[in-house]
């Protein structure tokens, strides 16, 4: 059947195709380009974001796709409206208190874990992380959630299916950033474990030994690393990589830097 297609006869018409060819739905034809497997593939331009489930709100990654493989990516953060009290869930309806920063860190870490666990389709674990996050945000004592965070971290660490699914999903944004304990390059899995362990530790300790949350710089670094990290990966892996960077777009938009 393939030979039945009158492609060659149409080649002469190819030149004026751009003008004459009807564009279905007003969508122009894709242009082609060589693929990593030696084929010529259509190049499709798809923007990931600014709104997707389990995606940093306002982040836009403009991708050029061949098949579902990203061959080029540009990152942008849409400017946000000025922040409100809602941006800091720990502070809603209450006066600022001493453990707000700890609370904010726990929320941020468990939130990041929710996104990644949901993306890998482990709904029960994602649900547990979300409940912890919501309870911390609505004022439950941190000491109460600490054992649950530790249990979740243990389950995540023990899951061989998760380890296998996330194997090779790199999330190393550069030197000196959130390395795993043994000095290996950060992967999505080590990041996930790091968040859960950190959140558990911070929730348990009353001393001020937690990591401070001034991460606008680090966030910018993560953002800048996205194009090189997602280049050559498929869309799904790219989603996992971006989720494992735990980008907090509000930290970036309020600090004035919108584009990278």
């Amino acid at each position: 059947m393939g030979a039945g297609m009158d492609m060659h006869a149409d080649m002469d018409a190819h030149m004026d195709m751009d003008m004459d060819m009807p564009m279905p739905g007003g969508i122009p034809l894709a242009s082609g380009g060589p693929d990593r497997d030696g084929l010529e593939m259509d190049v499709l331009h798809v923007a990931l974001g600014p709104v997707l489930p389990h995606w940093p709100a306002g982040l836009v990654v403009r991708c050029a796709l061949k098949g579902d493989v990203i061959v080029h990516a540009e990152v942008e953060i849409l400017p946000a409206a000025p922040g409100t009290a809602l941006d800091n869930p720990a502070r809603v309806g209450r006066l600022p208190s001493a453990d707000d920063d700890r609370r904010r860190t726990v929320i941020h870490h468990s939130d990041a874990a929710v996104q990644l666990l949901a993306l890998v389709g482990w709904w029960s674990a994602a649900g547990r992380a979300r409940r912890i996050r919501d309870e911390v945000a609505s004022g439950t004592a941190l000491a109460e959630v600490a054992p649950r965070l530790e249990r979740l971290a243990k389950d995540v660490k023990r899951s061989r299916l998760l380890g296998w699914g996330l194997k090779g999903i790199a999330a190393d944004t550069g030197p000196g950033v959130q390395r795993a304990g043994n000095g290996d390059a950060a992967t999505a899995r080590t990041r996930l474990l790091h968040w859960l362990n950190e959140a558990g530790r911070i929730a348990r300790d009353t001393a001020d030994s937690y990591e401070p949350l001034d991460f606008a710089d680090r966030q910018r670094e993560s953002l800048g690393a996205i194009p090189s990290l997602v280049n050559g990966t498929d869309v799904a892996s790219a989603r996992l990589i971006i989720a494992s960077l735990a980008i907090d777009t509000s930290a970036l938009t309020t600090s004035g830097e919108a584009r990278s």
């Binding site: 489930p53 389990h54 949901a118 389709g121």
Partner: peptide, 13 residues
């Protein structure tokens, strides 16, 4: 379940 990848969250449903 684990084979719901055709409707997976990592490709937005």
């Amino acid at each position: 379940g684990p084979f719901a990848t055709a409707a997976g969250a990592d490709i937005a449903g």
